[in-house]
Design a protein around this nucleic acid. Structure first.
Lengths: 279, 279
DNA sequence: CCAAAAGTGTTCCCACTACACCCATGT
DNA sequence: ACATGGGTGTAGTGGGAACACTTTTGG
């Protein structure tokens, strides 16, 4: 949580589309439609791991009680994937992360009601004394393309922005009320994340390069909110080829030293995938 | 393939957004942006089964040698899923089908080059002597949300449209050159389709209500382009609870009569899903 | 009786599960 | 010495894979 914010308008901020000052915001409202595609946004469920819990990054905008997922617009000349990375870099200052598109959202009634949209925006932009008229580009219905990201909790530094009142890392098991359909987006992101957790080295972004078995064990229990037998868990991870045991051990605490592991360089082929049903 | 087309302008066609006459097309070009969201389209890979082959429905527009997937725009007041169903109904006259969103496409260079887009459109709309100027709503970059559908091959009746020169059911193993990134879209649709084939009763749309084991066996071999052992295949389908064996047999040909099967009413729970890795 | 196509059962093996005791370390 | 927490092995089971002969039917 932060209470102060900068209002420097640097080239870098312009490039990244951050809004740090009232002027930035007014410029965005007035001219954003020249830089960005209207009717379309990207929302991103950013997952981190801390305190033995899987957490998602939430943001609260001015004028709102509900929380939101970080999101943004696609520049007119920008590839979709590039936009997703840029938006995340804007919000978290991270460029090295696991990012995956998972669904396009355009059915929720809260996204279709023009009145709701307008009210919603006006509460935010009241902070710069702007009211959107009916045909304003921001007042229209917006579809959103959902991404989820896995990031190193510790290296995230959320960028203060003028309209962002606060942010929070929230345990995914206890989500507060969220704006629009962001609850649905988060839940769907979780489902997809969980289904990928044995095929892709998803956990790589959530752990240090070298980690102990108890650490990754606790991580998987947090992600899947389920408990696993230590011995079977180790066997599975090794037989999938996901991790490799190192010779090193870590010396901590008044007990036996755990071995270190690292993720296999090679992405897991097909072993944990859907049952293949061969000939 | 058809060579003639109607040019009746009925209320029904207007509602469905079909373009049957030059007037329809001109109206679409001039006023489409009032009815539809710009910058965003839906493309649909429609799969059918015929001749022991999995086929996809392709369309060739006026002025083009390459083929396209059927697609369309989202109405401004229309939910995303509703738009996908409507577009399919427009093209195939089908309303009862399996339809699933699988990815949003917005990275392909062919979708980003303004010049390519404009040339592309102008070749089509030359048929009605229309040329789009630079700031025309159709001349801009468009992202596409990909859906795939499974339909009963026999009951598809492709609606003639003014700009559609011909359509074709094409074996998915031998795709001709496709417009834009439609090849990528089709391939990705296939990947997702294949990965779902043991969890969802996907084949239901592709077979008659009652079918024989050899029939569904050949269908699965066509979908997955892989051969299966008859005995193991039957065991798997039954143990997944996907199909139910009936007492009836079908009497055909100079050989033993095959039993009939039907799909289970209950959607398959979780049995064929990704390995669960319980405690 | 023959050709064509469909029906069916068994063995092997591996991966998933369940389960409990010993070992290293710091205080 | 002891408390803490990490390391490890085995037996049982169930599902997937491989594999070939018999049965029905129409001509």
């Amino acid at each position: 949580m932060y209470t102060s914010f900068g209002n420097v308008y640097t080239l870098r901020n312009y490039i990244f589309g951050r809004m740090n000052s009232p002027q930035d915001v007014v410029d965005f409202v007035d001219n954003g439609h020249r830089r960005y595609l209207p009717h379309l946004s990207i929302d991103c469920a950013v997952f981190g791991y801390h305190d033995q819990q899987l957490k998602v990054l939430l943001i609260r905008y001015h004028g709102h009680e509900n929380w939101s997922l970080p999101g943004g617009f696609i520049r007119r000349d920008e590839a979709l994937t590039a936009a997703a990375y840029r938006i995340l870099a804007e919000k978290t200052n991270l460029t090295d992360l696991f990012l995956q598109q998972f669904h396009a959202f355009g059915d929720s009634p809260t996204r279709l009601s023009r009145i709701a949209i307008q009210q919603n925006h006006n509460r935010v932009y009241a902070k710069v004394n702007v009211a959107l008229n009916d045909d304003h580009w921001l007042a229209e219905r917006t579809l959103s393309i959902g991404y989820f990201a896995l990031v190193d909790y510790a290296s995230v530094h959320v960028t203060p922005e003028f309209l962002v009142e606060e942010y929070r890392w929230q345990n995914v098991a206890f989500l507060p009320p969220l704006q629009f359909d962001h609850h649905e987006i988060t839940e769907k992101a979780l489902v997809v994340l969980r289904s990928h957790v044995y095929q892709h080295p998803i956990a790589r972004a959530l752990l240090p390069e070298k980690f102990t078995l108890p650490e990754i064990h606790a991580l998987y229990e947090a992600i899947l909110s389920k408990q696993f037998d230590r011995r079977n868990f180790r066997k599975r991870l090794l037989s999938l080829g996901l991790v490799i045991q190192l010779a090193e051990q870590r010396k901590i605490g008044p007990h036996r030293s755990p071995f270190l592991y690292e993720f296999a360089a090679e992405p897991v082929e097909n072993k944990g995938a859907v049952r293949p049903f061969a000939a």
